[in-house]
C-alpha cells in the first residue's frame, strides 16, 4: 500500500446514545477502497466524518497527515477533498453549469475565467459537456448523479469520498460510472461506499466491511471471497442448513454455509464472503 492518506484510529460516534460507529480503525492510501456493508452499517456516518462534515466523534483521524479537528488543518483538508454525499442536493433553478460553478465558488475558486475552465473540465470528465445549459430539474436521475460527481471533482482533489454513487443508476449508467471512478482512482485516494458487491469486485483494490458500526473485514477482494472457501455448494433444493441460499441462473440453488459431507463445493465470490460476514448465523459457519 502507498503512504496512507486517511488513517482512522478507534473512531466512535454515538447517535442519541446508540453507537453508530464503535472502535473503527483502518488506513487507506492511494487507490480505490470500497466500504461495504448493509443499510445502517455506519458507512455514511464514517464517510461524513472523513469528509469533515462532523467533528463530533471519539478517537483519532488523520487525513493527508492533518487533524480535521484543528481549524487550520481542516481548512487545508477541505481544499484537497471531494465529496459526493449519499443524497446530493441541487438548486433546481440552476443549470448544470451554474450549479457546478456555485460549488466551485464554495471551494474558493473566485477567478471567473479559471473557475469556468474548471467547471467545463469536470463536466467533460463526466460526459455532460453537451448538457451544461440544461436546468437540473430537467435532467434524469443518472445525469444528476453525474452532475454531483462532477462537483466533487472540482479542484482535482487528492481524496475523493463517494457515498453510494451508483444508487439509482441503470446498468449502462453504472458501467460508465465504474469506468470513470476506475480512472479517478489511478492517482488519488477514493473511498467508495456501497452495498453492491459488484462495484467492489470491479473497482476496489481493498475492501472494508462495516457491519453494525464495526469493521468486520479489511483486506483485498480475493481475501474477502476466500472467507467463503469450502462454504458454497450447489444443490437442486434449498438446503435448510445453509445460512443463505438463492436460486442461480441454471435453476439450481447456491447454498452458503457448512456444506453436507461429500457435497462438491463451488469457487466462492466476493458476495459469498460478504454474506458470510453479515448474515446473522453465518459467523458460526465461519467459525466451524
Amino acid at each position: 500500500m502507498t503512504e496512507p492518506t486517511v488513517v482512522a484510529t478507534h473512531l466512535t460516534l454515538n447517535y442519541r446514545k446508540t453507537p453508530a460507529l464503535a472502535d473503527v480503525s483502518f488506513a487507506v492510501g492511494r487507490g480505490i477502497v470500497g466500504l461495504l456493508g448493509p443499510n445502517g452499517a455506519g458507512k455514511s456516518t464514517l464517510l461524513r466524518i472523513i469528509a469533515t462534515a462532523t467533528s463530533s466523534y471519539g478517537g483519532d483521524l488523520r487525513m493527508l497527515g492533518r487533524d480535521p479537528r484543528n481549524a487550520q488543518d481542516r481548512l487545508e483538508i477541505r481544499r484537497r477533498l471531494g465529496y459526493l454525499p449519499q443524497e446530493p442536493g441541487f438548486h433546481p433553478r440552476f443549470t448544470a453549469f451554474e450549479f457546478i460553478d456555485y460549488v466551485a465558488i464554495l471551494k474558493e475558486m473566485t477567478d471567473r475565467v479559471r473557475r469556468h475552465a474548471e467547471v467545463r473540465r469536470v463536466l467533460t470528465a463526466v460526459g455532460l459537456a453537451d448538457q451544461q445549459g440544461k436546468r437540473i430539474k430537467a435532467l434524469s436521475g443518472g445525469m444528476r448523479q453525474r452532475v454531483a460527481l462532477a462537483a466533487s471533482l472540482l479542484g482535482d482533489p487528492e481524496i475523493l469520498i463517494l457515498d453510494e454513487p451508483t444508487v439509482g443508476l441503470d446498468p449502462e449508467q453504472r458501467l460508465r460510472f465504474r469506468e470513470l471512478i476506475a480512472d479517478l482512482g489511478e492517482n488519488r485516494t477514493v473511498v467508495l461506499s456501497t452495498h453492491q458487491t459488484e462495484d467492489v469486485a470491479m473497482l476496489c483494490q481493498s475492501v472494508v466491511v462495516l457491519h453494525q458500526g464495526q469493521i468486520h473485514f479489511e483486506g483485498s477482494s480475493p481475501q474477502l471471497a476466500a472467507l467463503a472457501d469450502g462454504r458454497v455448494w450447489s444443490d437442486s433444493v434449498k438446503d435448510p442448513r445453509a445460512v443463505a441460499a438463492w436460486r442461480s441462473a441454471d435453476g439450481s440453488y447456491r447454498n452458503l454455509g457448512m456444506p453436507p459431507d461429500g457435497a462438491p463445493t463451488l469457487p466462492p465470490t466476493i458476495e459469498d464472503g460478504y454474506l458470510m460476514l453479515v448474515q446473522p448465523t453465518a459467523g458460526a459457519a465461519v467459525a466451524a
Binding site: 481548512l75 465529496y83 454525499p85 442536493g89 441541487f90 464554495l106 462537483a151
Partner: peptide, 18 residues
C-alpha cells in the same frame, strides 16, 4: 432548507461568511 447544505459543510468557504 438549503439543498446543498451538506456540500457547504465540507467546503473550504467560511460558513459564517456565507
Amino acid at each position: 432548507v438549503d439543498p446543498t447544505y451538506e456540500l457547504t459543510l465540507v467546503a473550504p468557504i467560511s460558513t459564517f461568511r456565507l
